[in-house]
Design a binder for these strands. Structure first.
Lengths: 308, 308
DNA sequence: GTCCTATTATTGTCCTAGACAAACATGAAC
DNA sequence: GTTCATGTTTGTCTAGGACAATAATAGGAC
């Protein structure tokens, strides 16, 4: 009779749904229907929290709350057909495809050691540049898709991310330390915890000899601005994952643009930039290749400027 | 005139103060005193956000909101005398002390490359075990203290953390992969983003031949429980930093204890465990040494059990 | 049928204002 | 000086209302 229940604050963290949203849904749709403790505070039973987690995932896939809330728990379970996701999963060569499939299977089997070893081998065989573009990038995309489908649990995605980060960081650390320009500050905004994309560009930038300053994810805008000035950065590079709500990207970029000195460039990339409009003073990078091109352009422009 | 202002949601992320708290302070103390946009929504000017960040830091040091809110901005600036912090900064040997001082200075100078190189040298000289206990641990403590004093900006702490994580991860990756028991799942709860302590114990545990499964920080409790079962973990190890409010630790541990199968041990460590009461089914680890002792005990107990 | 536009429905986030428990400080009694 | 009771401070929860932005639908033009 393990009757576990969660406070509204816990549910917010477990599901990612705000307290306001949770109360609103209860008011409008009658679900969730938490019990109350002696003081009148909500207490959500574990099964309702699980159902909320499922609903959240379906909403992120493009379903609408009103529909989902009216459905029975069983109907929700059967529904999980993919809905949105326009992104084209470009087919790789057979070799690459097989390798990526292998990696996915290893994560699914929770074989951390084998997965990591597999990655290391790919890295050694392909070299850092191709490893990033041909292995890590497609793998990351596939994992994201699998998560959306519900084929991957959250913790499986976490483990994949953590292990991949390690391999990438290790590879980056083994590069000779750069001293020249540009100095690039790499980070993400407060609501963006995903950092794999950032590590990928860091690897590519570092290969090109740029000086990368990794601040880690979820840095307050005021601190990003401070850090950029203190480190005399030439460029601030941000990453937005596909999980980041597209409508929040432009305000965040605008705000940071205002806070940054005008002579520091602001670059934004990642899946989450896909459908974001052009903005004054912000360089959009839609792919890893865009990033390399931008870096090349910067170097060319800047070396001229130096000579002048 | 660059009049930058923040919405209440932005301020929540920039300062770490909840929307509820921000509105409450305004109601009670008259500060912050945001402007309003056309719809009546709050708009916080940048200088008020900065003042809130300062106030937040002072509160974390043990000051009380009521006092701080009544003080003028100038008085706040002069106040920053250290208040709390009982922790005894044990003096190391002269050599160690000098080295740690050097590292702090390098971070303060924003010389990332030199700092990282310095760490690598210490690692090579001391070996991973002593490196963790004699260099990383005291260094982390000193950085925490410096941040509390306001000598370190947030971004400086971020950079320190990021670089140190890299060195540690690299060292861990270079160890031979473990295959035996115990299998230890390492992670932190949703409100705990600090993960350095976790990496330190991972290094020590991995040295002892334990199989570590790093899930990364801020994993929902339901996912921790799922992952522990899926990975057939023997132990779930959590880390709480000193920044984590002590009163929230017991509920979190209790909840996770309920969610975990009874045969999976729950270990909790980190600065944040210092003044937390003993709980049924939870093993408290007050220091890195405690962790190693606990691991030794587990191994002894478990190998007997296997023979029986 | 397809495309574009105007209208309507849905949905999340903000608002005010009140209540209360837990944490903290203060002072009395020993 | 230490312990205990009392009073103050403080964060988080409650309720219900409002509204802008987004998404779906209907209506017309081709």
């Amino acid at each position: 009779m393990n009757k576990i229940s969660f406070t509204i604050a816990s549910v917010e963290k477990e599901t990612g749904l705000s307290k306001d949203t949770l109360r609103m849904w209860e008011r409008r749709y009658g679900f969730p229907a938490p019990e109350r403790d002696g003081v009148g505070d909500r207490l959500y039973p574990a099964d309702q929290v699980e159902r909320l987690r499922l609903i959240k995932r379906l909403i992120d896939q493009g379903h609408r709350p009103g529909r989902l809330m009216a459905m029975s728990p069983e109907a929700l379970q059967t529904l999980p057909t993919r809905h949105l996701q326009v992104a084209t999963t470009r087919d790789a060569t057979t070799d690459e495809a097989r390798e990526i499939g292998d990696c996915l299977a290893l994560i699914k089997d929770h074989d951390a050691a084998a997965f990591q070893q597999n990655l290391q081998q790919s890295l050694a065989r392909q070299g850092l540049g191709r490893f990033v573009t041909d292995t890590v990038a497609p793998l990351t995309r596939r994992v994201g898709e699998a998560w959306e489908d519900g084929r991957f649990a959250v913790f499986e995605e976490h483990l994949f991310t953590e292990l991949t980060k390690r391999v990438l960081r290790q590879a980056i650390a083994s590069l000779p330390p750069a001293t020249g320009r540009p100095r690039i500050l790499l980070t993400s905004v407060p609501d963006e915890p995903h950092v794999l994309g950032l590590l990928m560009v860091e690897a590519l930038f570092a290969l090109e000899g740029a000086q990368c300053i990794p601040l880690g994810p979820q840095v307050p805008l005021l601190d990003i601005a401070q850090a950029a000035t203190a480190h005399q950065a030439d460029i601030v590079a941000l990453s937005f994952s596909s999980a980041f709500p597209a409508r929040r990207v432009p305000p965040a970029l605008f705000q940071l643009r205002e806070l940054l000195p005008a002579d520091i460039a602001l670059w934004a990339g990642g899946e989450g930039m896909q459908h974001v409009a052009q903005q004054e003073g912000v360089n959009r990078l839609f792919s890893l290749k865009d990033g390399l091109d931008a870096l090349g352009l910067w170097t060319a422009t800047n070396s001229e400027a130096k000579k002048a």
